[in-house]
């Protein structure tokens, strides 16, 4: 596990330092959780935090732009796939953007 999210890290830090800092912004926390939760659907096949240990490509080093492009190509069939076409069609454009933002935020670029 070499990665973490900078913005989440900040959040955790704030929580851990609640001794000194009164509260974590509830709104910010929810937003973070939503992107994380959507992206965590990818982990089963592509690895925890996008780091794959198997034959399937990892996602941890992808930019948001590259991920969105790839998902759109899977959806349209421009990029051939076994299962990704079926999966990519299940998510909204906003959800795919959120996944992209999540993986881009990992600090291993």
């Amino acid at each position: 596990m070499r990665t973490h999210q900078p913005f989440r890290f900040g959040l955790i830090l704030a929580a851990a330092l609640a001794v000194a800092v009164p509260t974590v912004s509830a709104e910010a926390a929810s937003k973070v959780a939503r992107a994380d939760l959507i992206a965590s659907n990818c982990f089963n096949c592509h690895g925890f935090e996008g780091e794959s240990i198997g034959v399937i490509d990892g996602l941890h080093d992808m930019s948001a732009k590259a991920l969105v492009k790839k998902m759109n190509e899977f959806r349209s069939g421009a990029k051939p796939s076994t299962i990704m076409k079926r999966i990519a069609k299940g998510y909204t454009a906003d959800e795919i953007q959120a996944m992209g933002r999540y993986f881009e935020s990992l600090d291993n670029k």
Partner: peptide, 30 residues
């Protein structure tokens, strides 16, 4: 969206799905 693997696919398709099954197992367990 979703659904089953298409019917009538050849050996190459099913070989890839078998590889991805192993990939799924490794990453899901982790």
């Amino acid at each position: 969206a979703g659904g089953l693997s298409p019917m009538g696919e050849g050996a190459k398709f099913h070989e890839l799905e078998a590889r991805y099954a192993r990939g799924w197992y490794a990453n899901t367990a982790k």
